[in-house]
Nucleic acid binder design. Structure first.
Lengths: 212, 212
DNA sequence: TGTACAACCGCACATTTGTGTGGTTTTATT
DNA sequence: AATAAAACCACACAAATGTGCGGTTGTACA
C-alpha cells in the first residue's frame, strides 16, 4: 500500500487525483491540501510515502515547499506536478530535493506508475530533464569538458587548494614550508596553465573543472 | 540525418545494430568498431553525432573509452550499451561523460528513439538510474542542510559571478555601471554573509554551495 | 512613523597581489 | 650525457585588494 499526499490548489485536479488514488488497489490518499502551509503543518504526523506537489501555489510556492518538507521528512519522495515541462522550474525543484515530476495531463495509468516508481526508489522524469541534471552532475564530478592541457602538478594543486581555503600567499608559504616567492611562482604557473589572471578566476575554473 | 558510430566487440550485435541504423531513414552508421582503440584513432576525422559504446570490451573498457572520446570530441553524445542495467557501472559511465545508456535487448524501435533522443539533447535512462544521479547531484548542490544564512542579494550574486569570471573591481564596476567603491561594498557584504575574507575563498564557497 | 535592508557612493591607508626579471637543484626521460 | 620539467628562491614595483570610517536613497513592513 502506497500512501500518497497531494498538494494542489485547483479543486478539480486535486479531487480528481485523490479519487484516482483512492480508487486504485494498493494506493491510498492520506491527505489532500490546497497549499503548502497546511500540508507542512500536518506533515509531521502524516504517514506518507509519496507526495505530489504543485509548483504554482498560492502562498508558499512548491519549490520552497519541497525544501521545507524535506527538512521535516528527509526521506519523503516528492513528485512535482507541472502543467508543462518547464525545465528550469523542474530543475530547481530537483535541486530543492524533489525526486521527479509529473506532467498534469499524464494519463491516469502512467501517473499511478510514476508514483509507484518514485515509491520504489526511481525518479520518473523525461530524458530532457535527465540530461540537464547529469550535465550539472558531470561538472560537479571528475569529468571535465575542455580539459586541454590543464594538468597541474601536485604542488600547484596544493597551492590552489590552499588559496580556495582563503589563505593568502604568506599563509600558504608557512603551511607548505616554502617561501612566499615560491608560492608566487606556483601561482604564476597555475595562471599560465589555466589561462587566467586572478585568484578568483583560477579557483572558479579549477573547481568547475573538478581539479580541486 | 543522425550519424551514429558503434563500438561493440560482438560481431553479431555490432552488425545487427549497423544494419538497423543504416536501414532506417534519417539514420546513418558512419563507423562500426570492435574496440575502443580503433574507434578513438578514427574519431578525430569521423563525422559523428551519437556513439553507441559497449562497456565490456577487449583492451580499453568502455568507461575509459568515454573519457578519451570526450577529450577528443567534448560534444559527442555517447550512449552506453549494457546487457543488464548494472547501475553501478552505468553510473560510472555517466560520471565519465556518457549521456545515457541502452540495454542491448531494447526493441529496435525504442532503440532508434533513444538515439534520436540523445541527439536532440536528451538523456535516455531508466528512472532508477536517474534517481541515483540526482541523489548525488542533490548532495553536490545547495540542497544540503547547511544552506541557512547564505542568501546573497541579486546584486551581490552578480558581483560574485563577475569576480569568478576573472574581472577586477574596476571591470566589475564598469560592467554593472556602479562605482568601484560600491563593488567594494558589495564584496564586503558577501564576505560577511559567507564568513570568508578573500576573493578566492568566497568564490570557492559560492561555487561549492551552488550559489553561482 | 519608525525600523530594516538593499543598493548606492566616497575617502584613506596598510597589505596583498600580479608580473617583470633573474637564478639553483633534483628528478625523470630520452 | 643531455634535455625537460618540477620545485625551489630572490628582488622590485605598480596595481589591486581588504578594511576602517563616513554617508544617501528608495522600498518594504510592522
Amino acid at each position: 500500500m502506497i500512501n500518497v499526499a497531494i498538494v494542489e490548489d485547483n479543486d478539480t485536479i486535486r479531487e480528481g487525483l485523490a479519487a484516482l488514488i483512492n480508487g486504485t488497489a494498493g494506493y491510498s490518499c492520506v491527505g489532500a491540501f490546497g497549499d503548502c502551509e497546511s500540508f507542512l503543518a500536518k506533515l509531521p504526523s502524516l504517514k506518507v510515502d509519496v507526495s505530489l506537489m504543485d509548483i504554482g501555489l498560492p502562498g508558499m510556492n512548491g519549490i520552497d515547499g519541497v525544501t521545507k518538507a524535506k527538512q521535516i521528512k528527509p526521506n519523503l519522495n516528492i513528485l512535482m506536478l507541472t502543467i508543462y515541462e518547464e525545465s528550469q522550474v523542474v530543475f530547481k525543484a530537483l535541486c530543492a530535493g524533489a525526486c521527479g515530476y509529473l506532467v498534469k495531463k499524464t494519463p491516469p495509468l502512467r501517473l499511478l506508475e510514476s508514483i509507484k516508481d518514485a515509491f520504489e526508489g526511481g525518479s520518473p522524469m523525461s530524458s530532457q530533464i535527465a540530461r540537464q541534471v547529469i550535465t550539472v552532475f558531470q561538472q560537479n564530478t571528475g569529468f571535465k569538458d575542455d580539459n586541454n592541457e590543464s594538468d597541474l602538478s601536485e604542488r600547484e594543486r596544493e597551492v590552489l587548494v590552499s588559496l580556495a581555503e582563503g589563505n593568502n600567499y604568506n599563509e600558504i608559504a608557512n603551511r607548505l614550508f616554502i617561501s612566499v616567492d615560491t608560492v608566487r611562482h606556483h601561482i604564476r604557473n597555475i595562471y599560465k596553465k589555466l589561462h587566467v589572471h586572478s585568484q578568483s578566476e583560477a579557483v572558479a575554473k579549477a573547481i568547475r573543472k573538478g581539479l580541486i
